[in-house]
Write a protein that binds this DNA or RNA. Structure first.
Lengths: 97, 97
DNA sequence: GCTGCTGGTAAGCGTAGGCTTACCGTAAGT
DNA sequence: ACTTACGGTAAGCCTACGCTTACCAGCAGC
């Protein structure tokens, strides 16, 4: 979650949503240098949101279903909580009126 | 998304997941001062993740179903994308073997 | 009206962290 | 073996931003 706080890092993450890509390719599509992308990928990898595999000379990064799934579960909890609270509030109002 | 990047701010957000609360109450449960909580709530409110209503002297903050729903939709997109990519990768491997 | 409690805002400080440049390792091609 | 392309890492700079203290506004209650 903290890993997706930075806009640039989120851009890298979103780019991987369109399919696996190498570091240089991602850097070419963003207004930052290649080392910056590499550092962002390192953070995303440590957060479990991204996986990398070595293919020849290049290193291909992809979304990690596990990490993204965990993130989804996290957000989902608050989604249901927000709905419950909202529903409860509506009922509360109906009691008053 | 950027709004949930900071751990303390995320703690405030998570606290609201357990139900609506006033600023002072939240600050009492966290190791930061009340103004800090107030600033975090301001950011969360601008991000559409939180709503506030005035009740007497105090200001009660709650989760905003709209914003949380939007966040859920955002994460969900990547969740499906990650699954699709993973499935495609598996099929790719099967072709090779 | 005055007092006490609430919470938002301004000013300022200090650190975390994102970016770049420079360097090094490694794999492929000739 | 040499060269070229790719990418990770170190060092360093600089800005963003989270936190605190101090101040001010508004609502309740005596």
């Amino acid at each position: 979650m903290t890993a997706l706080g930075d806009p640039t890092r989120r851009a890298v993450f979103e780019r991987l949503g369109d399919g696996p890509a190498a570091v240089g390719a991602i850097a070419g599509e963003l207004p930052v240098s290649r080392p910056a992308v590499s550092q962002h990928l390192k953070v995303l990898k440590q957060a479990g949101l991204v996986t990398d595999r070595q293919v020849g000379n290049r290193r291909i990064y992809s979304l990690d279903p596990d990490g993204v799934g965990a993130l989804r579960a996290y957000v989902d909890r608050f989604w249901t909580k927000a709905l419950d609270a909202f529903k409860a509030a509506v009922e509360q109002d109906q009691e008053v009126s």
